[in-house]
Simulated scan of single mutants.
Amino acid sequence: MMRVLVVDDDRLARTGLITLLPWSQFGLKVIGEASNGEKALEFLQAHEVDLLITDLAMPVLSGIDLMRSVRELYPNMFIVVLSYHQDFELVQEALRLGAIDYIAKIQLEKVKLEEVLERITKRIAFELKQRITPSTSAAGSEQSAVELPMEQEEQDKLTNVLLHIEWLKEDAAYRKLLEALKPSRVKLEPLLEARAKLQEKLKPIQTNSANGSASISTLDQLLLEMASLREWFQGEQRLGQYSIEMIEAILKAAHYIREHLGEDLHLDEVAREVGVSRSYFSECFKDITTTSFQSYLRDVRMSYALKLLEETTLPIYAVSQKSGYPNEKYFSKVFRTLFHLLPSEYRAKGIKSSDFDKKALQS
């Protein structure tokens, strides 16, 4: 059971939350409650807590100040915030401090309560899978002074770390990764495969397509590219405003869109898939990718349609369906609006998307 602490200065709201939500159904147990941030910190000193659920606007010590203290004292604790819609700026600050989600109080009566906890536990499971784990499990065991080549399991863990974006943002994670990347121990080929996957993963948030495009054949070259990529990531102010978990969720959403292009995708569905509440998914998606969800979905659909028109002889109706437009007439209308050509005309002219003016997709 994950241990939960609920913090809210409104006693009725606090009691209602504790009483009504089906905690045990999702492996959660409320072990305490507090009426403000100061009392919450006192409780945390005496009890082990895995998940903190806190209101933001509270007397004595606000939820934001409580979060700052918890981040410093208990960095691995998961945090969910309680809020009213008018607390939007506070919730944004909470997300930047690492909150994995929020519960809108005025929506609790409108949604199935189990959906709230399902979303939260899904986000927790996602983060746990992404965290760096120690390469050894036996406490107190000593490693030989001679550095032998990595075992396959250890190499796999290392490549998984490279795929996660924590090292791009956190100094400690970057140092730990560099310490593990020693020529005498690692195999380069799996790292290069991971590097290629990372490039693909980061595309939705990269405005400069030249990032990470150089040919790599040595570990030193890979290390130089990693340093360059990290410099780019940290120079993007919009990315620095959000937690690693939120950026990962948006990247996962972008990947989900690309993998399900032929389906009737909606914002609600994708937000639910990555475990983020609808309203904040929309806001964070636009901030992190620099484009709205609907514009991104349209761009990806149209880019895929261009590829199909160039590389296949599929009829237009099939291109339309595979790109996520079951209505061929609507597909042609959108295509013509963007490119000033019908799909059939585009194919007949033999235009290549690599030479085509894709600025239309940004309009």
Score class of each variant (00 low, 15 high):
208 N>G: 05
247 I>F: 02
235 G>E: 13
45 Q>R: 11
70 V>C: 15
224 L>W: 03
9 D>S: 05
107 Q>M: 12
212 G>V: 07
168 L>S: 07
15 T>S: 11
226 M>G: 00
23 W>F: 09
295 S>C: 02
76 N>Q: 13
157 K>E: 01
86 Q>C: 11
62 S>L: 08
152 Q>V: 06
3 R>T: 15
82 L>W: 01
322 K>V: 07
209 S>H: 07
56 L>C: 05
93 E>I: 15
227 A>V: 07
197 K>F: 00
249 A>V: 07
202 L>C: 02
274 V>I: 14
300 V>C: 04
302 M>P: 03
281 F>C: 05
253 A>N: 09
10 D>L: 01
10 D>W: 00
283 E>L: 13
363 S>Q: 09
58 M>D: 11
47 H>D: 09
331 F>R: 01
360 A>L: 11
92 Q>I: 08
241 Q>N: 11
44 L>G: 07
300 V>E: 15
325 Y>V: 02
15 T>D: 02
324 G>Y: 10
282 S>I: 04
334 V>I: 13
215 S>H: 12
201 K>W: 09
58 M>H: 11
175 R>Y: 11
21 L>Q: 12
25 Q>N: 08
12 L>S: 02
132 I>E: 13
73 L>E: 09
40 A>I: 12
100 I>D: 04
173 A>I: 15
144 S>D: 12
350 G>R: 08
273 E>L: 11
84 Y>H: 12
171 D>C: 00
24 S>G: 03
355 D>F: 14
46 A>D: 15
314 L>K: 15
252 K>M: 11
193 E>L: 14
247 I>G: 03
9 D>G: 01
53 I>G: 00
242 Y>A: 06
185 R>H: 03
117 L>E: 05
355 D>V: 12
320 S>Y: 06
190 P>L: 09
322 K>W: 12
273 E>D: 12
207 T>F: 10
178 L>R: 09
89 E>H: 11
164 H>E: 13
75 P>W: 02
